[in-house]
């Protein structure tokens, strides 16, 4: 019980992380996968920020008071840049989704797999049976 009390924040963050992870690996709609990736990514950010928290600390903006305790600024820096990089890579994902829809007419993962298979079969047939 004391174990859970000491790490309760991490446990809740892991539950969030796995909800996002499931959305990413389950076959389904690609926009939903991107949202799942966003949830997964934000949960990882929360884990980092939780590690940097000090009980009784304040935000790492110096006040000039020597007695004040500051939370660790290093995770903040890493995550700050990761958020902006995250949105840039998410945009690449959305751009690919748009092009996939334009080419195949679907953004459902399972339908897409069937279409790609039938395309490959058609190519193979065209190669092996010359008209």
């Amino acid at each position: 019980m004391s174990e859970i009390a000491a790490h309760w924040n991490y446990y809740l963050v892991i539950i969030l992380m796995m909800l996002g992870f499931y959305a990413v690996i389950a076959r389904g709609n690609m926009v939903k996968k991107m949202v799942g990736l966003n949830i997964f990514q934000t949960s990882v950010f929360m884990l980092y920020i939780s590690v940097g928290k000090i009980n009784g600390g304040t935000a790492p903006i110096l006040t000039g008071d020597p007695a004040s305790v500051y939370s660790n600024p290093l995770p903040h820096v890493l995550i700050l840049t990761a958020i902006v990089v995250g949105v840039a890579t998410t945009a690449v994902g959305y751009a690919l989704i748009i092009r996939i829809y334009e080419s195949y007419g679907t953004i459902e993962d399972d339908e897409l797999a069937v279409l790609i298979d039938s395309d490959e079969d058609a190519c193979e047939r065209a190669n092996t049976e010359p008209a």
Binding site: V84, V87, A88, A91, Y94, A95, I98
Partner: peptide, 16 residues
């Protein structure tokens, strides 16, 4: 860089 990238991304998506 960030401002231009974000506007460029929006223009690219909306322009599609």
């Amino acid at each position: 860089t960030v401002a231009s990238v974000m506007v460029a991304l929006f223009f690219a998506f909306a322009g599609r």
